[in-house]
Amino acid sequence: MNISKIANLKYFYKHTKNVSKILSFITFSLFIVGIFWGLYIAPKDYLQGDSYRIIYVHVPAAWLSLQVYIVMAVTGFIALVWKIKIMEIISIQSASIGAYFTLIALVTGMIWGKPTWGTYWVWDARLTSELILLFLYIGIIVIYSSFTDKRQGAKIAALLAIVGLINIPIIHYSVEWWNTLHQGPTVTKFEKPSAHITMLMPLLYMLLVFNLYFVTVLIKRVRLGIFQREKNTKWMENYLND
């Protein structure tokens, strides 16, 4: 049974080299198309002008920041319960990708906030929970890197991710509740300007491209993770020498 597990890593490593190259190419080209679509073809917003166009990066990044957390926690759960090595690697490698998405969402949110709110940062519910999400990600990355035994680090990090996943809705709703209590009026600025289909289409497209990007980077990082773990094994030596 165990031999199939090691073989699984081996199989993944050997067979994803080309996949990852092709995926990178596809993602990059689709991304160029998406940027062009979002920044030039999509119409201007009647209220916010051109500044709204940052949503084509901000919204997918914010979406992915949560989605990656779910991926990380679910694969972590599988890794803990069924002790599947590759799931461990996927879970922990997702953490830093998710942290980057969260950071992008935060920074673009701040840039967007300048023309919308007149300031880079407001303690808005969404920004605040995104910031807490970043801290959750950082906690997971930091605890993993503190272990010299990386397998144990991955397990502990997976456990933290699962507990965090249960907590995210609680944290999110309490922050939202806190926000409505303290600064109701600023949120109304965000009221939906009933997005037109011509604006919505590139957004959905970008969401797809970001997902593709996540998968591409994840495959690359998992390959790196496998390499770091298995660099001393025979098959890796043989494979590199071939």
Partner: peptide
């Protein structure tokens, strides 16, 4: 299990205190 972890525990737990 980590030998030098003086500040690590607080970093991972404080976000959970928020609610």
């Amino acid at each position: 299990g980590i030998s030098k972890n003086n500040i690590l525990g607080p970093i991972i737990t404080v976000p959970f205190y928020i609610p």
